[in-house]
Simulated scan of single mutants.
Amino acid sequence: MIKILVAEDQRMLLGALSSLLDMEEDMEVISQTMNGQEAFEAIVNHQPDVCLMDIEMPGCSGLDVAGKLAEISHPCKIIILTTFARPGYFERAVKTGVHGYLLKDGSIDDLSNSIRKVVSGQRVFSPELMMTTMTQENPLTEREQEILQLAASGMTTKEITKELFLSHGTVRNYISEIIHKLEAKNRIEAIKNAEKKGWI
């Protein structure tokens, strides 16, 4: 029996997914949660074989949970379910080592088959998501992403220089390059563009 945890912040979808998967002869939904932090705790406590995880949830994101599990080498296999075909999310998911990345609009048969494949050791990625990523490569370096993430959190250039031990001129140059790469008019627009693509 494949033990499954479902983490999804939309109550109706959470209930529907869990009920449909429970109807599969070889699957059992052992826990449900609507919050990222609770999902992490439930995985550690209940030891499911597979966790179906939404990306955007209260507490922390599905990708953050996957990252935490990777840090402690937890054996639970993560399948991300998303409505967002954002290339940055997919890149992060692959780097984090998730076992599946699928769009929510697939059929329950496709999902249950994907779960079986993942349990058997395969990785399952939505072709649409892979195409989106291949056609929209992230132009930002890791350092540029880090600086833009700090700017998005509300930090000023002065605060970023202290946080990263960089000179004021260096941070200004980075931000100027980020704005140019993202074809933005200013820092605010650059942040919006990067968030829309899932690059920060």
Rank of each mutant, 00 (worst) to 15 (best):
S107F: 08
P127T: 09
P139M: 10
L129M: 13
M134C: 12
I115H: 00
Q145R: 11
S120A: 15
T132D: 06
S114W: 03
K104C: 08
N113R: 15
E137A: 08
V124C: 10
I160N: 00
S114K: 09
Q122W: 10
T156L: 05
S120Q: 15
S153F: 07
E128M: 12
S114D: 00
T156W: 03
L103H: 05
F125G: 00
S167F: 04
T135H: 05
L111T: 05
R143N: 12
Q122G: 03
T132V: 14
M134P: 03
L148V: 08
F125M: 07
T141A: 06
S112G: 10
K162M: 07
I115V: 15
A151W: 01
Q145E: 11
I115K: 05
T157C: 06
R143T: 11
S114H: 06
A151L: 14
L164Q: 10
T141R: 15
G106M: 14
A152Y: 04
S114G: 10
E144L: 09
I108C: 07
N113T: 12
P139F: 12
G121F: 09
L150P: 01
K162W: 02
K104V: 08
E163G: 02
L103S: 05
R123L: 07
G154L: 09
T132Y: 07
K158E: 00
Q136S: 14
A152S: 15
S112C: 12
E142C: 03
G106N: 12
R123C: 13
E144C: 02
T156K: 13
N138W: 04
L129H: 04
T135I: 14
V124H: 05
F125T: 01
T132K: 14
A151H: 06
T157G: 01
I108Q: 02
M134D: 00
N113E: 08
I160W: 03
K162G: 04
A151E: 00
R123F: 09
S114Y: 06
Q122R: 13
Q145G: 05
K117F: 06
Q136R: 14
E163D: 06
E163K: 08
T141Y: 14
T157L: 12
R116T: 09
L102H: 06
S167C: 08
I115D: 00
L111W: 01
K104R: 11
P139H: 07
Q136H: 15
I147M: 13
L102G: 04
K104I: 11
L164D: 02
E137D: 01
K158W: 03
F125W: 14
L148H: 06
S107L: 12
M155V: 01
S126R: 03
P139W: 05
I108E: 00
L166D: 02
L129D: 05
R116G: 02
S126P: 02
E137P: 06
L164Y: 01
K158Y: 09
M155L: 14
A152D: 07
P127C: 08
L140C: 04
S112F: 14
R143W: 10
M155E: 01
Q136N: 15
I160T: 02
